[in-house]
Computed example of a mutant assay.
Amino acid sequence: MAGSDPHKMIAQADNLTTLSITRWTADWSSATSLYEQAANRFRVAKDYERSKAAYEKASKGQEMLASPWDAAKHMESAANMAKELRNWREVVSFSRRASELYIECGRPQPASDALAKGARALEETMPEEAIQLYTDAITILEEDGGGQMTFDLYRSATAVYIKLEKYLDAAPLQLKFGLAASKCNATNSQCKAYLSAIIIYLYTNDYKQAEMCYNDCSQIDAFCKSDQNRCASNLLAAYSDGDIEEIKHIAQSSSISNLDHSIIRLARKLPTGDVSALKGNTARQEDQPLDENDLT
């Protein structure tokens, strides 16, 4: 008998899975149980490499026994061990495999969660991969009609984009977040997302894009009547006036203080460009004579 020695458990389990012919199901069941026990003992002993390998074999065993749920749980455990070992590529592959197994047994929420856990582990070391995992986690939930569960994922992905200084990816993602919130009748989250997108464009010193974004969002009744709309309107007005102090004052307002931390940090750094030049451009546009043939 293997007793309590995880090394002997692994050897016995390997022997069962290699030699099993006539008693296939019984042997795989016994082997899988031994892999599970060994994996847990190695984990407790902080032998993460052997624990990871045992969890992988336990997951494969559960697959062979037609139990994708248990296989997915073991694959998540393998991902946790890979995280302890700082083997980030395996964190990605194990998280994705766990997600696939959860989908196989019709469980989209755990499937999304498996990807999100992997993404959180990768934010510092592989941020681009983390964003992709967050994005895929969002897609799983939205395709299943679970849009309400995506909000934190949108926020996390946006924060990573901002950390990477990929602002032109962060702003559209916030607009997509706003659309998802709209479908769930989450008006407050929707309006915060639209204000956040406008702030991101202003942070990139793209007043024109920020204004276009504001105009588009203002076509939506929920945003048009919101405090976030008024905040955005005042902020854009301060920009067009070239009023640096007013911009800084608005950045301290409650409407902005209630946004996500990554957006607040951007807002508190406004303005990032020469707003006096913007004021001059606005004045020149206002001084141009009216073209009676222009009906736009």
Rank of each mutant, 00 (worst) to 15 (best):
G178F: 00
G178T: 03
L179P: 07
L179Y: 15
A180Q: 14
A181Q: 06
S182A: 12
S182V: 01
S182M: 06
K183W: 04
K183Y: 06
C184E: 07
N185Q: 14
N185A: 10
N185G: 07
N185H: 15
A186L: 03
A186F: 01
A186N: 04
T187W: 05
N188L: 06
N188C: 06
N188R: 11
N188Q: 09
N188E: 12
S189P: 05
S189Q: 07
C191M: 02
A193M: 05
Y194M: 12
L195F: 15
L195D: 13
S196W: 10
S196C: 08
A197P: 11
A197K: 08
A197N: 10
I198A: 13
I199K: 01
I200L: 08
I200Q: 02
Y201T: 15
Y201F: 15
L202I: 09
L202G: 04
L202A: 07
L202C: 09
Y203C: 10
T204C: 12
N205P: 05
N205T: 11
N205H: 09
D206W: 07
Y207T: 15
K208T: 08
K208V: 09
Q209Y: 06
A210L: 03
E211S: 03
C213E: 10
C213R: 02
C213T: 07
C213V: 01
Y214E: 01
Y214W: 00
Y214R: 03
N215R: 05
D216H: 09
D216S: 13
C217T: 02
C217E: 04
S218K: 06
S218I: 04
S218W: 04
D221E: 05
A222M: 01
A222E: 02
F223I: 03
F223Q: 01
C224R: 14
K225C: 06
K225S: 09
K225V: 11
K225G: 01
D227R: 13
Q228I: 07
Q228R: 13
N229D: 14
N229Y: 15
N229H: 15
N229M: 14
N229G: 05
R230M: 11
R230P: 06
A232C: 14
A232T: 10
S233G: 11
S233D: 11
N234R: 13
N234M: 13
N234H: 12
L235E: 02
L235C: 04
L236W: 00
